[in-house]
């Protein structure tokens, strides 16, 4: 599991959305299995990577189970019939994320935290090797932030999926992520959080006269 951090406007979401083929790339090239991203058809791509975006879903009049079921679209037939295998995968995703109690609820009845979990479950049901999440913890309280990131971490470790997400919760990422990408103007550093701390990579993230990084606790302190 890897997190992308950096200040507002540095291009975290742009990078993630470009990797996820949501928006066209500005430069460079993206390859999956040594094949250019553009050469994948939308269905092929949907079997390789799944997304959780910041935009809210357009219609919330779906039940949780229906919404998660939509994640099976790359595998269903022309009219989207869910096979017993699909149903099983959906049930697994629901259990994995812990949504059994609300599976038959409508999405408009859910809190932001629950809805975010539903979106994670949907991405999980899509059954891809790579999962991208754009700021999955925004608008959530600390408890739910930790809950979501821990959930992602356990999914990544148990299923062997690659999970990449953007975040402003740098301290949380330092504690829970395997790898981190720090985006800064002109350069980016990628590595395990403890290595990045040793290399003093976090110090330059914010202006030192406002916010100081404490390498011992892995946290930021506000300068008075």
């Amino acid at each position: 599991m890897a997190a992308i951090v950096g200040i507002n406007g540095i291009g975290k979401s742009t990078l993630l959305r470009t990797l996820g083929a949501v928006q066209p790339r500005i430069s460079g090239d993206i390859r999956i299995h040594d094949k250019a991203l553009e050469s994948y058809s939308s269905t092929q791509l949907a079997e390789e990577l799944s997304l959780v975006l910041t935009e809210s879903v357009a219609s919330k009049n779906l039940t949780v189970r229906e919404l998660i079921g939509l994640g099976r679209q790359p595998y269903t037939n022309w009219i989207g019939t869910l096979s017993t295998k699909d149903q099983k995968i959906i049930t697994n995703a629901i259990q994995r994320v812990g949504l059994e109690n609300i599976a038959s609820k409508k999405c408009y009845e859910l809190s932001d935290g629950q809805l975010q979990k539903v979106m994670v479950a949907r991405a999980l049901a899509q059954d891809t090797a790579v999962m991208f999440l754009d700021e999955p913890t925004t608008h959530l309280d600390l408890f739910h932030k930790v809950q979501i990131i821990k959930l992602l971490r356990s999914i990544a470790h148990e299923t062997g999926k690659t999970i990449l997400y953007t975040t402003h919760e740098i301290e949380l990422a330092i504690q829970l992520c395997d790898k981190m990408l720090i985006m800064e103007q002109g350069k980016s550093t990628f590595g395990a959080p403890c290595d990045l701390i040793e290399q003093k990579s976090f110090e330059a993230l914010f202006p030192a006269e406002t916010i100081l990084f404490d390498p011992n606790t892995g946290s930021f302190r506000i300068q008075n």
Binding site: V22, S42, Q44, S59, Q73, P74, Q126
Partner: peptide, 22 residues
């Protein structure tokens, strides 16, 4: 024939595309 993509579009265009809708 559009039913499948219509259902995906309920989540918005970006999600629909990420779920394989051309």
């Amino acid at each position: 024939f559009s039913i499948k993509s219509l259902n995906a579009l309920l989540l918005g265009e970006n999600y629909a595309r990420s779920m394989g809708v051309p």
